[in-house]
Deep mutational scan, measured.
Amino acid sequence: NMTTNERRVIVPADPTLWTQEHVRQWLEWAIKEYSLMEIDTSFFQNMDGKELCKMNKEDFLRATTLYNTEVLLSHLSYLRES
């Protein structure tokens, strides 16, 4: 059983600085953390943090459901504000 610390993704605090690998790690973490289903992860495959942060609700909806979109966008905006 993993502790919270072991599951925590170590990525730069500012999502606009993320590499493609960071985006992948964040997505994998969010899927596990929030038990998200039905995400087309290939949609995010060649995307870095700058591109991710430019995405709006409609962009996310092409890859996943409305619920997942709201979870991911709210977590992303939380990270950008902190």
Rank of each mutant, 00 (worst) to 15 (best):
Q45N: 07
H22S: 05
W26T: 00
L27V: 13
E58M: 07
V11G: 14
Y67I: 15
I31M: 14
T4V: 12
P12R: 10
N56W: 06
L72Y: 02
S74F: 04
T69Q: 01
T19Q: 08
L61Q: 12
R24D: 02
M47R: 05
L36G: 03
H75L: 03
K50Y: 15
L52T: 00
K57Q: 13
T69V: 09
W18P: 01
T19C: 05
T19E: 02
A63K: 09
K50T: 15
Y67S: 14
S35C: 07
T69I: 02
L72P: 01
K57M: 12
M47C: 13
E51M: 09
L52M: 05
M47W: 03
V23M: 01
E6V: 09
L66F: 02
Y34L: 06
V71C: 14
K50Q: 13
V9T: 13
D59S: 08
M47H: 05
E6Q: 07
A13T: 14
L17P: 00
N1Y: 12
W26Q: 01
E51C: 06
N68G: 08
M55N: 01
D48S: 12
Q20G: 10
L27C: 04
P15M: 05
E58R: 11
S35D: 12
V11F: 15
L66C: 11
Q25P: 00
T64W: 03
W26M: 03
R8F: 07
E38N: 04
E38L: 11
K50S: 11
D59N: 04
V9R: 15
A30K: 07
I10E: 15
D40I: 02
T69A: 14
V11I: 12
L66Q: 10
S82F: 09
M2I: 10
H22E: 14
C53S: 06
L66P: 12
M47Y: 14
L79S: 15
Q25Y: 08
R8E: 13
M55P: 01
A13W: 13
T19N: 05
Y34Q: 04
T41A: 11
R24G: 13
L66H: 12
L52Q: 00
G49A: 00
N56Q: 11
T19R: 08
K50D: 09
T65H: 05
S42I: 10
D40R: 03
M2V: 02
F43R: 09
Y67N: 12
W18R: 02
M2R: 14
E51G: 10
L52I: 02
Y34F: 15
E28C: 12
N68F: 00
R7T: 12
Q20R: 10
A30D: 02
S77T: 13
R24Q: 13
M55G: 01
Y67T: 12
L61R: 09
T41F: 15
F60G: 00
L76T: 00
W26S: 04
A63T: 09
I10R: 14
F44K: 00
V71W: 11
V23P: 11
T69Y: 05
R7G: 08
L36Q: 02
E6K: 13
L36P: 02
V23E: 00
M47K: 07
Y67Q: 14
V9K: 15
K50L: 08
E33G: 01
K54R: 10
R80S: 15
E28S: 08
S35E: 09
A63M: 13
Q25W: 05
N68D: 15
N68K: 00
L27T: 04
L66T: 09
L73S: 09
L52N: 01
F44W: 08
K57N: 10
E33M: 04
F60V: 03
L73H: 07
E58F: 06
E70T: 06
A13G: 15
K50E: 14
E28T: 12
E28H: 05
T64N: 03
S35W: 03
L61F: 05
D14L: 03
T16V: 10
L76M: 06
K32W: 07
Y34T: 02
T41K: 13
N56E: 15
D40L: 00
L72F: 06
S42E: 04
N5Y: 08
I31P: 00
T41H: 08
L72V: 02
M37D: 13
E21R: 11
S77P: 06
C53R: 02
E38H: 06
T19H: 15
F44D: 00
P15S: 02
T16E: 07
L52G: 00
R24E: 04
T65L: 02
N46Y: 09
C53N: 06
K57W: 08
E21H: 15
R8H: 11
L73T: 11
W29N: 15
L52V: 06
E28I: 15
L73M: 10
I39P: 02
L17V: 13
V11R: 15
D14G: 04
T19L: 05
I39E: 05
L36E: 02
H22P: 00
Y34W: 13
D59I: 02
M55V: 04
M37F: 15
T4D: 13
R24A: 15
T16H: 02
E51F: 05
V23Q: 00
E28Q: 12
T4R: 07
Q20V: 08
S74I: 02
E21I: 03
M2E: 04
T3E: 04
M55Y: 05
S42R: 08
V71F: 06
R24M: 08
S42V: 10
Q20T: 11
M37Y: 14
E81D: 09
L36D: 03
P15K: 00
T41G: 08
D48Y: 04
G49W: 01
P15L: 08
L27W: 01
H22D: 15
L66R: 10
V11T: 14
R62W: 04
E6R: 08
E70N: 08
Q45F: 09
E38T: 08
L73C: 10
Y67M: 09
F60M: 05
V11W: 15
V23I: 04
G49S: 00
S35M: 05
W18H: 03
W29K: 12
L66Y: 11
G49P: 03
R7M: 09
L17D: 15
E51V: 08
W29I: 11
L17K: 09
N46S: 09
L61P: 00
S35R: 07
A30Q: 15
M55S: 03
S35T: 12
E58W: 07
V71E: 04
E6H: 04
K32D: 12
W26V: 01
T3M: 13
N5H: 10
L17Q: 13
K54T: 06
E6A: 07
L72W: 00
F43G: 06
K54Y: 04
R7W: 07
R62G: 12
T65A: 03
Q45C: 10
E38A: 15
V9F: 12
N5G: 11
Q45L: 12
E33N: 04
C53H: 04
L36K: 01
R24T: 10
M55I: 04
E21P: 02
S74K: 15
Y34K: 11
L17M: 04
A13P: 15
T3S: 14
E70A: 02
T41S: 08
T4K: 12
W29V: 08
I10N: 15
L17E: 14
L76F: 02
E51L: 08
M2Q: 13
R8Q: 09
E38Q: 06
W18E: 03
P12Q: 07
W29C: 11
W26Y: 15
D59A: 11
T19M: 04
R8A: 07
W26K: 01
D59T: 07
S82Y: 07
Q45I: 01
L36H: 03
E58P: 13
M37G: 12
W18G: 03
T19I: 03
V23K: 01
S42G: 10
E70C: 03
F43P: 10
F44H: 01
P12M: 09
M37Q: 05
L72R: 00
L76I: 04
P12T: 12
A13D: 15
E21F: 14
E33T: 05
F44E: 00
